[in-house]
Design a protein around this nucleic acid. Structure first.
Lengths: 201, 201
DNA sequence: CCCTAAATGGATCGATCGCTCTAGTCCGTA
DNA sequence: TACGGACTAGAGCGATCGATCCATTTAGGG
């Protein structure tokens, strides 16, 4: 009833603790996956308590994780958007995405890359909610890349297919780079992807 | 019980339980990662006991996991070798690797792909032993691919770089395919990688 | 046949897991 | 001042974690 009148000071006070929980969880999921992240650690890192967590996320860890993945995904979307808008030529723009990802990873000691990869891989077939959330994030990124390719005069069908492989390569190169603590795989990916995009124009 | 038979069969009988532990762990790691796999589950799946596990792997779960990753990696090496030797043309051979991976994944309900990806991603920076084991596996696969490219008259430097991106793309496409339960990303990767290899000849 | 060492079975450990619960505090409204 | 809902605090739940321990079984050499 009064719910509609709650428009005054609500947004920030209300979601403060909630936001801290989501942000902390997003970071932890990205670094250590789902099973590797404990609720206690989340609560500690977010400077929150069990009470708050289960107040905002009654369904518990899984619900919080799904929300955190969406949050982290939006963050990664921003990174992609920055890379893609850094050049007019799609080939150059895609390469810049890889370089940007490499820089971000290196600066964070190889922890802050794709926020869904680690969680998604270990959860496949065991948590439909999280798997679907991950899938939606990946599709969103594919569309973002595809739209840049189409802007660069690459025909629709080709653009969609190419965007899929571009994302695959970025994700895989991030894996190789992180495991070896070396940004070479990402820089090579940049070069090869640019070549591939140019050949499809 | 036949004593003479036992004498001949000793080396194999001796490591029987050990082997079952390694095989079971390899499968579980590939499907649910490190933290998602409990020792109890390993013991159950391998039809072994805690006593046996800690007899053969005194350092516990981590030591067993490292050995299991090496085992699984050898398995994946075999898959790559099969794909790479399926055609003379490197481009076609690489594409066949992707198709082979797609078929294997689909047949196993999207569980049996790269045996190190899930574990590696969640363990980065937290278990040097496992991270190094994963890194070694990835490097071995890169070399395997590079050597096929060199056989196809691609110059050394180019071949090594290309092999890195090929593995990146395969790993990433597997992630996308598994998350979406759809082999399209892997088949697109096949097509695009073949194109890339042909352009580098 | 005994003896030793390898291998096994499984009860049990303290710690931690995700989660529940109750007793609060805080604050806008009347 | 009193009320009521949003939010917080954290002790404690049963279950399970990885790991330990030791009694028992097994196999081969003397």
């Amino acid at each position: 009833m009064n719910a509609t009148e709650r428009t005054t000071a609500q947004p920030e006070a209300r979601s403060d603790t909630r936001t801290r929980l989501v942000v902390a969880t997003a970071t932890l999921l990205q670094r250590q996956g789902y099973e590797g992240t404990s609720v206690k650690q989340i609560v500690r890192e977010a400077e929150a308590t069990y009470g708050s967590l289960y107040h905002f996320f009654p369904a518990g860890k899984e619900e919080l994780a799904a929300e955190a993945l969406r949050f982290g995904a939006a963050d990664f979307t921003e990174l992609l958007r920055r890379g893609l808008s850094s050049a007019d030529e799609p080939a150059e723009a895609v390469a810049n995405c890889a370089h940007l990802l490499a820089d971000t990873l290196r600066e964070s000691n190889w922890t802050d890359g794709c926020p869904v990869a680690a969680t998604a891989l270990e959860i496949i077939g065991r948590s439909p909610v999280i798997q679907r959330t991950s899938d939606e994030a990946l599709r969103q990124w594919r569309e973002l890349i595809a739209s840049k390719l189409k802007d660069g005069a690459i025909p629709e069908v080709k653009a969609v297919a190419l965007a899929c492989t571009i994302l695959s390569t970025l994700e895989g190169a991030e894996l190789l780079s992180r495991v070896s603590s070396d940004d070479e795989p990402l820089h090579l990916a940049a070069e090869h992807l640019a070549q591939l995009v140019r050949a499809s124009a």
